[in-house]
Amino acid sequence: MMTRLAAWWRERVPVSGVQLRELTNEPVPNHLKKWWFALGGTPAYLFVVQIVTGILLAFYYQPAPSTAYESIRFITQDVAYGWYFRSLHKWGATFMIAAVILHQMRVYFTCAYRRPRELNWVIGMCLLMTTLLTGFTGYSLVYEQLSYWGAQVAANISNAVPVVGGVAKHMLLGGEVYNERTLPRLYILHAAVLPTTIVLLVIVHVAFIRVHGVTELRFPDEDVAKPSHYDFFPDHLYTELSIGLVLMILLSAVSTIFPAMIGPKADPLTTPEVIKPEWFFYVSFRWLKLFSLTFAVLSTGFIVLAMFAWPWIDSALRRLTGSDDASVYIGIVATFLLVGLTVWEAVVEH
């Protein structure tokens, strides 16, 4: 009976285990046994967590100004484990963005973006942007005071972008001002458009890794006699599974200790005294307060553009300076700047 069933299956799905293994079995360089080199898998895992919890929340969320806040309240207070899944989603987002940034920093400081992997860096940058946008749209869905005013401010910032800004704002809000059709827009961006984009980008991202192979690194203290690679399956998979479980435990812990709250409901007539975006926008928020709107927007755009083009800027710098490490020094300065501005925004009220 079992053999007949197996035969039936094999005939319809003519893929054997061995084939599947060979397909997935990329040899993994040894340095990936160190966790900070495996940070690319972490956002991917968290992304899955976000999809699962996001789908769960979508069963109850109602994206309209009259219902959004109440449905969030309902999820948080009335549905069984609603507070937990909402907190998981919130903390998952925080962790995911943090992991993406750490992953990017690791890639940057090990100069893993250099020839021939420039395009994958660009894909990665696209992933960073999409992730940040997903975070932003998600935060706006809660429809509490800060969500509402965050979206309002962001829309007007994009308005300051020359030429395309007005169109971007109109597209984001579905009109010239925040209106009753804005929330559905933000929702469909958050729950369909952006996640799909992320999935497609990740596929390309991973495909590039498979095509190029993981950047090889050798540490001076390593034993040369030992094999320099190990199997993805099952060895690296086990590592990723462990990381996944650790992440779940961490997420559950912070979700229980610092559950997601609901602030006061959005009031389009009263801007709260203290208004802050989510932490990952602290940098740009502080930047905005330091300079005029146009300069801040333009300079931010310039910086983002430079980040996209860094593999080529880096090679130009290397040619210019003759040193291999110019990017690393710039990176250190940039990191201090990022951390500094974030902390500054975090500690002050205005």
Binding site: Y84, L241, S242, L245, M248, I249, S252, A253, S255, T256
Partner: peptide, 17 residues
Amino acid sequence: LIAALGLLFMVSLIFVQ
């Protein structure tokens, strides 16, 4: 390790419960 972490995850979920 995975077995242990899996169980720990369950314990954390029991705490959630």
